[in-house]
Design a protein around this nucleic acid. Structure first.
Lengths: 252, 252
DNA sequence: GGACTTTATGTTAAAATTTATCATGGAACG
DNA sequence: CGTTCCATGATAAATTTTAACATAAAGTCC
């Protein structure tokens, strides 16, 4: 049907980056050019493609050419992060109240999250915008000074915010991890916030892609025993995994 | 010469996101459309813009979080709002500390603002992201529940934030205005925030495009005499203007 | 099941935009 | 100076997009 065809077109465009109407016509010989045009129009409305003269291109394709500091980051280790985000999304039940940080992995989680009844606290500007798209998700943004490199906020006043709020789950990620130094990040104020979130939550889930392993950043905000679940990718070393499992921490 | 013009076009496109050839023609009345076309072609070759039917768009624009809901709104009365934003931008001096709301007009102001040493408080997610692009601007995001229709936050705790901060200027806009009901908006909590910002600031500048005139929204947050400067467009009725000027309020 | 409405699609003509081509003027250069 | 090169402008031709209407298919409601 219509929707199937539209999805197929979107997929093709994501794959090829750019297609002319002629090429699309070849791919879909059983419908008219006008129909394909209308499909492209709809996809454009949905913000997934950009129509250009002669055809259309995938938004993702354009994003690859990126020069911005934040978007650059999002292209690194994308596949692992998406897989981690998908795993994390599968752990979140309806009616849950949770905290998410503002990192790129959290951004993918925000995208993967189904539109369920949830209440989410976050300090990520981009994360908040992404979540705001979902009708059933209630989003609360934590205020504070905006950090330009990762578009998230942090503030000494955050505690005041947390005082009147409750959440069961903190899903956070780290910029670096070693067994000795634990989970660390690059800003004191960010570390403070994450510590607070961790303390406030009943459980802490850590998303960590394996590229972070062996790195050390200035501020540690959690050690191995502070977390409840570690969500990582297939390249996570077995010997490290043992370190977690022997402390009854689930690694997935 | 040629290169200068091309750079200017690129800059404009980064600011506005998207321009039609007609709009470009207005901006550059001394060259022909064909020349502008050739400039766009060259910029496309350089990978800095994407040409679309009718004009071109900035690559940066596409890289923004996809499918923003407020993009719908941003297409209405765009030209007036940009002009108002430009006027407002010209009023802001270096080293100023100010509050900006999260509306679409504020969004244009954020884009028009030069990269000067400023400290800006805002409750707009998109505004904060836009401002974070500027190296010299220090941005503080106000936290709170995210309102999905306009991507801004509001919270009863905002007062706590304001208590420890100072700003000279509040640049805000309203959803509706009549002489009797003053400046109003659609959410109580938003009205509260704007009132607070107004009270905190030494001066209040109101950005109001003329399409808002005669409309009434549920919550009034300011009356004529509460503001210091009214920034509006050329369609602002003369009789209303008199109402402001007789109270020594600058209308521009 | 039949009459109705809605939705998706195709066809064609009209409108708009882009490309191609050639002509002009001025700057650069010997 | 004369020549060459480049940027620009004007116009016509080609292409693409939009708009309008017609038709077929799919639901929907008694």
């Amino acid at each position: 049907m219509k929707r199937d065809r539209i999805e197929e077109i979107a997929e093709l465009l994501d794959k090829r980056g750019k297609l002319t109407l002629e090429q699309l016509d070849e791919q879909f010989p059983n419908v008219s050019q006008m129909t394909l045009r209308r499909d492209l129009f709809q996809l454009e409305q949905e913000g997934r493609i950009i129509r250009v003269r002669g055809g259309a291109m995938s938004v993702k394709e354009v994003q690859k050419v990126s020069g911005e500091p934040y978007t650059k980051k999002t292209t690194i280790h994308t596949d692992e992060k998406i897989k981690i985000a998908q795993k994390a999304a599968s752990l979140i039940d309806e009616n849950c109240s949770l905290f998410m940080d503002g990192g790129t992995t959290a951004m993918y989680l925000a995208k993967e999250l189904p539109d369920k009844n949830l209440h989410i606290f976050t300090n990520g500007l981009a994360v908040a915008i992404e979540l705001a798209q979902k009708k059933n998700v209630n989003v609360t943004m934590l205020g504070g000074q905006v950090m330009k490199d990762n578009l998230s906020t942090a503030s000494p006043v955050a505690k005041a915010y947390f005082d009147n709020t409750n959440f069961e789950l903190a899903i956070i990620s780290a910029s670096a991890f070693t067994p000795g130094n634990g989970f660390s990040c690059g800003a004191q104020i960010e570390a403070d916030l994450l510590k607070l979130a961790r303390a406030k939550a009943k459980a802490t889930y850590m998303m960590l892609d394996s590229s972070k392993i062996g790195k050390i950043m200035p501020y540690t905000f959690a050690h191995i025993e502070d977390i409840d679940v570690l969500i990582t990718d297939d390249n996570f070393p077995a010997n490290l995994k043992a370190l977690f499992t022997e402390k009854n921490i689930v690694v997935m």
